[in-house]
Amino acid sequence: MASVYEGPIQALIDELGRLPGVGPKSAQRIAFHLLKIPPEDVARLATTIVEAKRQVTWCRRCFNFATGDLCTYCLDERRDRTVCCVVEEARDIVAVERTHEFHGSYHVLQGAIAPIEGVGPEQLRIKELLARIGDEGITEVILATNPNIEGEATAMYLARLCKPLEIRVTRLASGLPVGGDLEYADEITLGRALEGRRDL
């Protein structure tokens, strides 16, 4: 969009437009909203952004978001350190935590192998995971990468690296979503669901 506003207004629109998922129209709407609300509200938002950026870092151990050296999961002594759930992004930890089924540790790869994007294993936190397996006495690695082509490639690559370490390597099961319709299930998902069927 051409620069049609006064300097600082256009600068604000341009900055907001750089955020993910915010197009020129949305940027303009947010900018005018910010200009309309009381100055203290804007100051609070600005301070929150600056403080969050200043305080939040990567956990030294698992590469989750942390406000100190270690994240809350790594600091929690009650968690089982022998089982490690490997996820692509920090937000995936929240998804796993919501199940209340897992009480082990985590490791965030900060991405997935994406051959078509040129993202290789060396750009992920794989070396750090292998070091943790050796140092922390991990006996099981749960590969919880996304069930898409990038996630599957990453899981296969990690499984190949972990196998010689003589630890248990598991992959999250694939199956039918609860509340879904069988007729809409794709062949791969249904095939895997049949393979992984359980006795009742």
Binding site: I116, I149, E152, I188
Partner: peptide, 23 residues
């Protein structure tokens, strides 16, 4: 689906070669 090529997804080497052809 006509063919999901499942064998390609379950072998890292095959997958990378397939992705190269797609690219």
């Amino acid at each position: 689906t006509i063919d999901a090529h499942r064998a390609l997804r379950e072998h890292y080497g095959c997958l990378t070669h397939a992705v190269s052809m797609l690219e």
